[in-house]
Amino acid sequence: PTIVLKVSPEELKALEKAGVEIEKIEKNEDGELYITLTPEALKKAGFE
């Protein structure tokens, strides 16, 4: 199962800087950012 999270541009930068593997980055028509994370990326980021 993949996880989709709504993030701010600042959060996205912080995640990328931390080396979190982001599978997909999407922006909706309201300009909101959503990222898709794999279970492996979540484990690496410390989420179980």
Results as ranks from 00 to 15, higher is better:
Phe47Cys: 13
Tyr34Arg: 07
Pro9Ser: 09
Lys43Phe: 08
Leu42Thr: 04
Glu26Arg: 08
Ser8Thr: 10
Glu40Leu: 09
Gly19Thr: 02
Ile22Leu: 07
Thr38Arg: 04
Glu32Pro: 03
Val20Ile: 14
Lys24Val: 06
Tyr34Trp: 14
Ala45Trp: 10
Glu21His: 07
Glu11His: 13
Lys27His: 11
Glu32Asn: 11
Glu16Ala: 10
Phe47His: 09
Glu10Phe: 15
Glu23Val: 09
Ala45Val: 06
Lys27Tyr: 13
Glu29His: 10
Val20Cys: 06
Tyr34Thr: 07
Ala18Trp: 14
Leu33His: 04
Thr36Ser: 08
Gly31Tyr: 03
Ile3Glu: 02
Leu5Ile: 05
Glu40Phe: 04
Ser8Met: 05
Thr2Lys: 08
Thr38Ile: 02
Glu21Pro: 09
Phe47Tyr: 06
Ile35Gly: 00
Thr38Tyr: 02
Lys24Ala: 11
Ile35Lys: 00
Thr36Asp: 01
Asp30Ile: 13
Lys43Tyr: 10
Glu29Phe: 10
Lys6Asn: 04
Leu5Val: 05
Gly19Pro: 01
Lys27Arg: 12
Thr2Ala: 12
Leu15Met: 09
Leu33Ala: 04
Thr2Val: 12
Pro39Ile: 15
Ser8His: 06
Pro39Cys: 15
Gly31Asp: 06
Ile25Leu: 08
Lys27Ile: 12
Ile35Met: 02
Glu23Pro: 03
Val20Arg: 01
Glu23Asp: 07
Pro39Arg: 15
Pro9Arg: 14
Gly46Ala: 04
Lys13Ser: 10
Glu40Thr: 06
Asp30Cys: 15
Ala45Thr: 03
Glu10Tyr: 14
Glu11Asn: 06
Thr36Pro: 00
Leu5Met: 13
Thr36Leu: 07
Pro39Ser: 11
Thr36Val: 06
Leu15Phe: 07
Glu16Ile: 13
Thr36Ala: 04
Glu21Thr: 07
Val20Leu: 09
Lys27Glu: 10
Pro9Ile: 09
Gly31Leu: 03
Tyr34Asn: 04
Leu42Met: 13
Val20Pro: 00
Val4Glu: 03
Tyr34Val: 07
Glu32Met: 14
Val7Ser: 02
Lys43Trp: 09
Ser8Tyr: 03
Val4Asp: 02
Pro39His: 15
Val7Pro: 00
Thr38Met: 04
Glu16Trp: 15
Lys17Gln: 10
Glu16Thr: 13
Ala18Lys: 14
Val20His: 01
Ala41Gln: 12
Lys24Arg: 12
Ile35Arg: 00
Glu48Met: 07
Glu16Pro: 00
Val7Asp: 00
Asp30Ala: 11
Glu23His: 09
Lys13Ile: 10
Pro39Trp: 15
Glu29Pro: 09
Gly31Ile: 01
Glu32Phe: 14
Pro9Lys: 13
Gly31Asn: 07
Asp30Leu: 11
Val4Tyr: 12
Leu37Gly: 01
Lys17Ala: 11
Val20Met: 03
Ile22Arg: 01
Leu5Tyr: 13
Thr2Trp: 15
Lys43Val: 08
Lys13Tyr: 15
Leu37Thr: 14
Glu48Gly: 07
Glu26His: 09
Leu15Lys: 00
Lys6Ala: 05
Glu10Asn: 10
Leu12Tyr: 08
Glu11Ala: 14
Lys43Pro: 02
Asp30Glu: 11
Glu48Val: 06
Lys13Cys: 12
Lys6Cys: 07
Leu33Thr: 11
Gly19Ile: 01
Ile22Cys: 03
Thr36Gly: 02
Lys17Cys: 08
Ala14Lys: 14
